[in-house]
Simulated assay, not measured.
Amino acid sequence: MEGSVRLLLVEDDNHVAAALSAVLARHGFEVTHARSGEEALRALLPDSGPPFGVVLLDLGLPDQDGFQVCGRIRKRTTTPVIMVTARADVRSRIHGLHLGADDYVVKPYDTMELLARIHAVSRRTLPADPAPSAEEGPDSRNAPLRIGPVTLDLATRQVAVDGATVSLTRKEFDLLALLAQRPGVVFRREQIISEVWRTSWEGTGRTLEVHIASLRSKLRMPALIETVRGVGYRLVSPAN
């Protein structure tokens, strides 16, 4: 991946931006620095050059709050967004994920940790559909999954609860789809991180917890995803 990712760094502190840009450049990233929300949004316009592979978004911007910028970014592009901020409370993390952020890194951070997270979201693509078995037939993998009042359409990547569409980020959908394809089966944390985040980096564990909390909140069904202490998570059908 190194040498092939164009990265948009949204940071109003020039000293922080210069130091981070130098590190990112040494790891093969082509960095564009935006000092405000509006500058970042202009950089993401279709006629502003090749698409970015990832956006690093500071929340403390001079012209508008980074949460607002994230919401506006998500309306115009699916480019992965990593929020980088000093706001460490869980409420802010969940709010950022609701707005469409793909990850959330708290300052001060370890540079290698940030690089690992950038690599994880940059590698992300739509998950490949597994080949159907002979018993399933060629079209069965496109059939919507139904778990109680929840419906997942893997083909369109849409989720509904009691017929009402629920807006999920890509990682939230991937996580829910993984659990929903085998209801009742306990997925180990390491397995989820490997299949959804495409990484074995153990630091992703906190991000997994935040995504689980966000899913429970958005679906308004806290008991749907059960925590199996010391192991991982499983999806529990309301019928059970």
Score class of each variant (00 low, 15 high):
F52N: 00
L97W: 05
Y104N: 02
L224P: 05
R87W: 14
V106Q: 09
V10H: 04
L115I: 13
A22G: 12
A143W: 01
S194E: 15
Q68W: 07
V231P: 00
V5R: 10
P80D: 11
R74I: 11
M1H: 14
E209T: 15
L7V: 14
E209W: 04
T165N: 10
Y109P: 11
G230K: 10
V210K: 01
D12A: 07
S36Q: 01
K75S: 15
R141T: 12
V54Y: 01
E135H: 09
D110L: 02
V186N: 01
A239N: 10
R188C: 09
Q181W: 02
R189A: 15
L9M: 12
I193E: 06
R157N: 06
W197Y: 15
V106W: 06
A143S: 06
P238H: 06
K171Y: 13
G203M: 01
S4Y: 10
S36R: 00
G53S: 03
R206N: 07
Y104M: 12
S48A: 15
R76S: 13
T165I: 08
V81E: 01
V121Q: 02
A134K: 13
M1Y: 08
Q68D: 15
E30W: 02
S217W: 02
A164L: 06
H27L: 03
V150N: 05
G28D: 09
V5E: 12
H95V: 09
A177V: 03
R123F: 04
E38F: 03
S140F: 11
D65Y: 05
F29V: 01
P80K: 08
A17F: 03
L152C: 12
E190G: 06
V23E: 08
I82H: 05
E226G: 07
E226S: 11
L176T: 05
E11V: 10
P62M: 07
S36M: 03
A143N: 09
E209C: 05
L9Y: 02
Y233I: 12
F29K: 00
F29L: 14
N240P: 01
Y233M: 09
G53C: 05
P149S: 15
P108K: 02
E2F: 02
R91F: 11
S92A: 15
P132Y: 03
M112I: 08
W201D: 15
P183D: 09
R35C: 11
T227Q: 09
P132V: 11
R220T: 13
R123A: 15
E136D: 12
E30N: 13
V159D: 00
V185L: 06
L8W: 00
T151G: 03
I73H: 03
V106P: 09
L61C: 08
M221V: 03
